[in-house]
Design a protein around this nucleic acid. Structure first.
Lengths: 162, 162
DNA sequence: ATGTATGCAAACCATTTGCAATGAC
DNA sequence: GTCATTGCAAATGGTTTGCATACAT
């Protein structure tokens, strides 16, 4: 990951605190650091653990507060996968799309440059775009294969019964 | 909404039940109907209410079961907005993208044909695409304006104190 | 000194689970 | 008759909330 992304987030947080007359608490910066150290998706628990390991334990309430704040500042994005909520820092360089199987719920990150540029080039009305997340839903090949197999089996059972 | 979409979903459910040797319960078809009657986003509670109004009350457990099944069958998609989970039937005609404000969390449906065609034309690897959802995150103009106003106010307070 | 932010624990609420009853085949 | 599916109620677990304390300014 490009460290300039991290620094940009720092500056966003600084600016917000300065302009809104809030407090520069060590927790907020520690959490921000942990997020960028993790790279990629993370759950609240993983983030908590990361901070514990960094000898900077933070309460769950503060984690949720900060995550909400960072989302408002467009520093992170919240995903809701089948196995729970995941957060992720926006990456300016090569944003990823998510390919998700509707059956096994497996999430795969893929690159679709055409889509990314189409999203970037669109002119939004009364809206300042900060980031995006795209989920392409479907069936992965292994589930496809398994389903076909299982259905065949069920069908033969049915015929035998008759 | 095009009714052929609804019929396609019916056929998907029929095929699944037939091939997997499951049961054609009235609940499943009633729920499917309610979903297509609602049109657009809905919460589990809204769906439950819709079914109550249609004099076909269904238990919450069954609703969740069916929603999970319909998701596996790629009939519906699950969204996770700030104010809770919402479901939505896939629409083949003119799929919508979501524009979401990171501050007030307002969700607006927008059309970005270039994006839709880029998603459609991409060649996925070992994956059969069934649908997608795109969330473009940012700041809506009214939040933008409000934030600027508030920060200005906070700043003048700060100066007065000094 | 002021009032924002944190930490803790309790409360909340959407979703899941276990199990008995139902009913589709 | 068999076994998938439903309905109910209890359990679960992630997230929020209330309040006292700490601390950034």
């Amino acid at each position: 990951m490009n460290n300039s992304v991290r620094e940009k987030a720092y500056r966003k947080l600084d600016a917000y605190i300065e302009e809104s007359n809030r407090r520069k608490t060590p927790e907020r910066y520690a959490i921000l650091d942990a997020i960028y150290d993790i790279k990629g998706h993370f759950s609240v628990e993983q983030l908590k653990e990361k901070l514990n390991n960094a000898h900077f334990p933070v309460s769950r309430a503060t984690l949720f507060n900060s995550l909400k704040l960072f989302q408002e500042l467009s520093i992170i994005v919240r995903h809701n996968f089948r196995d729970g909520t995941r957060y992720e820092a926006y990456m300016t360089d090569e944003p990823k799309c998510h390919q998700i199987c509707n059956v096994c719920n497996k999430v795969t990150e893929i690159s679709i440059p055409m889509v990314v540029s189409a999203i970037d080039n669109h002119r939004y009305k009364r809206f300042r775009k900060e980031g995006f997340s795209l989920y392409v839903y479907g069936i992965c090949s292994s589930c496809q294969a398994r389903l076909t197999r299982e259905r065949k089996k069920e069908n033969s059972k049915k015929k035998n019964r008759k």
